[in-house]
Design a protein around this nucleic acid. Structure first.
Lengths: 215, 215
DNA sequence: CTGCAACCGTACCGTACGGTACGCCATCCG
DNA sequence: CGGATGGCGTACCGTACGGTACGGTTGCAG
């Protein structure tokens, strides 16, 4: 994963990370009303330093999103001992991780910021979030799906389609509703149902792609 | 709720609709860089008129989104002659409509604008888009699902869950990727696959919830 | 014709914010 | 101790944009 390397090389000093934390906090609190002055004040640094370190406002925004998005961790899955039980556990793990991540305030903020950014010609942030979100999941999940197919646990013609179906079954309309600020979907509300949703999504996925169910 | 009523009563004169069209065009072209001056120039009207008609920038934005979002039309479905074939056709119709709508530039723009708006404390636009998007679909689809259940064509315990599964199977990761500006997902690219995706999603939904498949 | 209302075009104001400049202090090195 | 570097705080500049004011024009009613 080229991006992870890039992120790792782009190493920020602790002081810089403090600044990025301040920026992220402001982003989460204040929506995208992120001003350089506010970040400087929050981080107790001068604007001049911000510009020196990050170039301009976009640079600061990009650094913040990049740094934060890279923190998303995918679950590790042992591909060597794949049986139906292990597969189910792995899928549930992925589903749980995906759901828990994208209902978090940080994820919502990052996605909103990136989408706002993409509304202009700029697609930097969009790509960063994509790369560390949906596409990262895809990269991690696909090999497992394919391994499961090789082990005759799953059946599908396109692992791409299988992945996307899994994504859809897990996420459903939760993300878009959260992004749009649906007040009927409080975070705690959703969080309480994560386990049930994870189980349902996994069951449904296995019903659709499990070897037995898909002759 | 007050909002839906407001939409129906809030009837715009042709001149006002021309202004809203100009605003929407600018929104689509220019991202959310919508300025009052630009709208006035595009619509050949004075800023004073804009403020007189719409109050302030937010009012104009709200009117634009409201007016446009209300144009989304749901397919009509005959609930009285439900058999498995009619149900499948209806579901495909819904899926096609949903997909075609949300991959359109207008929908993407509206959603982006609403999400940007929701990033601030404001959730006006978010609710409008929600109300005319996902929630409108839900309102239309749920009765059909329940009728199909009554006709023993579908089996599920919660029509809410069934609806959300359908949504997930149809939309998958398409919307979020488009909103984030994924360059790998051109509109024509997606559009070409709509029919296949519609069929797949419907098949999968019926496999999960069809009476035969779900004993 | 006259008055009036609506509306266009434009000039104008105030503010917020991105970006820069500068003075001051702390730490470090010779 | 003295110069230099890095960084804080603040003041400042320019611009873009939301919002207002005003003069000019059209169309209509009496």
């Amino acid at each position: 994963m080229a991006l992870a390397i890039k992120v790792n090389e782009e190493t920020f000093t602790p002081r810089q990370q403090a600044v990025l934390t301040a920026a992220l906090d402001l982003l989460v609190e204040n929506g995208d009303g992120l001003t350089m002055t506010a970040v400087a004040r929050r981080a107790s640094c001068s604007k001049e330093t911000l510009y020196k370190w990050f170039g301009d406002r976009d640079g600061l925004l990009t650094a913040t999103v990049q740094w934060q998005a890279a923190k998303v961790r995918m679950p590790y899955v042992d591909r060597t001992h794949l049986n139906i039980k292990a597969l189910r556990t792995s899928l549930e793990q992925f589903a749980r991780d995906l759901l828990m991540t994208l209902i978090g305030e940080v994820s919502i903020t990052l996605n909103r910021t990136a989408i706002t950014h993409a509304a202009q010609e700029k697609d930097d942030l969009g790509n960063i979030v994509l790369e560390n979100g949906p596409l990262a999941i895809r990269r991690r999940l696909k090999p497992i799906l394919e391994a499961a197919r090789d082990a005759r646990l799953l059946r599908f013609s396109s692992s791409e389609d299988a992945y996307r179906t899994f994504f859809g079954l897990v996420v459903r309309d939760v993300q878009i509703r959260l992004l749009l600020g649906d007040k009927a979907l409080t975070q705690s509300n959703v969080e309480a149902n994560v386990e049930a949703d994870v189980k349902t999504a996994t069951d449904q996925f296995l019903a659709l792609y499990g070897a037995k169910a898909n002759p």
